[in-house]
Design a protein around this nucleic acid. Structure first.
Length: 103
DNA sequence: CCGTTGACTCTTT
DNA sequence: AAAAGAGCCAACG
């Protein structure tokens, strides 16, 4: 039995470019409502480059604090990258209704 | 087994 | 609209 976060990783990898997913959707996709556990998996992020953590956002559309150990403010740069992928970011927020990917 | 933690979400103030 | 509190789940010690 793989751990919860393993499943989350798989789902996350399934997310195409230009799309984003909320922790909620992600957790529910794996069959659980452990929104926090999903985030926990990202925080550990053992699959760092393999997992597009920057595509995972909060349900409010605001970027969490993924990558960079949450200490640096490089989050902005991630947003820039996201915009490059095709996601329109306004004021550090993402339009969930437009770019929220559903499994 | 119990208690703490965490990159969350929802409801109320 | 923004802030605070309560709730839920999984992993770790």
């Amino acid at each position: 039995m793989k751990t919860f976060n393993e499943r989350v990783y798989e789902k996350l990898k399934k997310v195409p470019k230009g799309k984003v997913v909320t922790y909620k959707t992600l957790a529910e996709s794996v069959g659980s409502k452990a929104y926090r556990a999903a985030g926990n998996a990202m925080r550990d992020n053992m699959d760092a480059p393999l997992i597009p953590c920057h595509r995972v956002i909060s349900n409010s559309g605001y970027i969490g604090g993924f990558c960079g150990k949450t200490k640096g403010k490089k989050i902005k740069e991630k947003i820039e990258l996201l915009k490059k992928e095709g996601v329109v970011v306004r004021n550090n927020k993402i339009d969930l209704k437009r770019y929220l990917y559903r499994f």
